[in-house]
Write a protein that binds this DNA or RNA. Structure first.
Lengths: 221, 221
DNA sequence: GTCTATAAAGGGATAGAC
DNA sequence: GTCTATCCCTTTATAGAC
């Protein structure tokens, strides 16, 4: 865990951590970017404050001037990523699409979100540290997975009200669709069995899930 | 590193899942129990060899006499839990049950397995350390989640061959059912939002999932 | 605010006696 | 095999100069 005299030092302006509270190029922003990079790629325990300072091109004293400690820095990263994630879930408008196309579009967006290396990495770290940081687990869950449930549920309820779907419990139906999107691919990636998933596979998963969902929830003639 | 180097200090296999297949009372058994307890309750990084030795009522030297290091000990715990888990997934015979009852029974067994505190704890740790222990992630996935997929897929294929279900791709159908079982409850627990799930909730989740599944995959009249 | 240098503590791993 | 005692390195966190 030593030899990394990383040439991987970021000089680019922060794109992933588009900090609303940190101005780009400032030391806090550099620290946030470096910390997120390391926490997500190595986990909480294996990431040292030393490495963060080095990666951020900052001294440890500066690091501690902005964050009171490792745990607070971790909390800041997760909390920040939550907000970014929430925004990504603001679904693009699919109201003017055919039902099948709308659900497929939602599925592709959902999967491309949760399968992205960033999301997978955060998922892993937050789940892994859920025991030590219970609040963080709840916050992340509410701003991420749970938000998807709610918005999809609302969408399905709307379609049901129009008679396009036969749904008694929209939330449960949303869970069913999400489950069928997720299960064929998500655990593979979480456990590191596969690095990523080909877009072709994603499309097939979405197609199969939507078809099964519609067989289950389309009004019978 | 090699994760396959599990020391075979097994002497007298027992049926016990929680304790060990190590002869009860031996030092290795004490160590395994203590290590599993600590790894699963605090995570890999936060667990020290010192604490393991103390909990096991053993000196550190003894600990290192049986396991070459922290990583190997962790690998041994996960590997051991895999075997125990595999056995739990050997489904009880549901062949003489009505299709709905069989699927419901499978669902309840599945959920009670993956929602057990033990399984949740191991899930968390393995996912959290999947980056540092890639082999372990794959091994655990194969012996756990993937095995469930395979056996359920085989079951569904058999029913489809008898004309009781209309399924083109049994593996995909199995994933759909598993996803509908899992999604409403699993992430809550993984992220620590809920401590556990009431049996009544589990029953309702299973009931809803089976009904939706049958609407999707029952042959149309 | 930021750096260099260092203190203070804890953790993994081992030596040597029994 | 097991224990006591210890080494040595890493890590977190801070002190003091600029």
């Amino acid at each position: 865990m030593t030899t990394t005299a990383t040439p991987d030092i970021r000089t680019e302006p922060t794109a992933s951590v588009s900090g609303a509270e940190f101005k780009q190029g400032t030391k806090p922003a550099q620290i946030m970017v470096a910390a997120k990079e390391l926490f997500t790629s190595q986990g909480f325990g294996a990431t040292s404050m030393d490495a963060i300072a080095r990666t951020a091109n900052v001294s440890k004293a500066t690091l501690y001037a902005h964050f009171s400690g490792k745990e607070e820095l971790f909390a800041a990263i997760v909390s920040h990523t939550c907000r970014a994630q929430s925004q990504l879930l603001l679904a693009p408008s699919v109201d003017d699409l055919d039902l099948t196309d709308a659900l497929s579009e939602i599925g592709r967006n959902f999967l491309s979100l949760i399968l992205s290396p960033q999301a997978v990495a955060i998922f892993r770290v937050v789940i892994g540290e859920a025991v030590r940081f219970p609040d963080l687990g709840r916050i992340f869950f509410d701003s991420g997975p749970n938000q998807m449930r709610s918005s999809l549920s609302a969408f399905l309820a709307k379609k049901a009200a129009r008679g396009q779907l036969d749904i008694e419990a929209p939330m449960r139906a949303a869970e069913h669709l999400i489950g069928m999107f997720q299960t064929p691919v998500h655990l593979h990636v979480l456990f590191g069995v596969k690095e990523g998933v080909a877009q072709g596979d994603v499309d097939k998963v979405v197609k199969d899930a939507v078809e099964a969902f519609l067989r289950a929830y389309l009004p019978r003639a």
